[in-house]
Amino acid sequence: MNDKQLDDLINGLADEVAPERDLWPDIEARLAQPAASMPAHRPAPGRWWGQLALAAAVLVSVAAGAWWSQTPVEAPAAVALADLSDDAIADAADTGWRGELQTADDTLAAALDERRGTMEPELLLIIEQNLTIIDDAMADIDAAMDAAPDDPTLRAALIDAWRQRIGLMERARALTDS
């Protein structure tokens, strides 16, 4: 194919591609929420591990929100940082926490792929919701670290959020294995 043929194809692309589903109901539901509110969905009752993970994740998210809003940088009591030494924090950062997170994602995806056929849709939904909450916290921390990349408190919070993420995935895998 030559450049002219490629340009002709580009010019022939559709201006519009409709989504596969109507996005408006979800958009409208979000419009009713305050801008900084958490996702509306919550795990169904009776899933103790999901509720625990959610509660833990929310604590991180709230903490991250406080940093992001430029309130004084102070480790909230909700985030368990006491057992993280400076060396452990430095090691985690130096060895590439992003790579660790990606590995964790891959681990979860592989585990869920193997079990998808037998997994209850409700369980899959709970996992997704909890991951979303933890992701929000990580994104907040990540954004805050743009301004303060060497802030040890932010770094520790990110490691803590990462630990919660791993904990959630381990719980999910254990539950689907049982």
Binding site: D105, L108, L112, L124, I127, L131, D135
Partner: peptide, 11 residues
């Protein structure tokens, strides 16, 4: 930056 979508796409 949320990457939720990418993770969801895997699930």
């Amino acid at each position: 930056r949320r990457s939720h979508s990418r993770r969801l796409a895997r699930v």
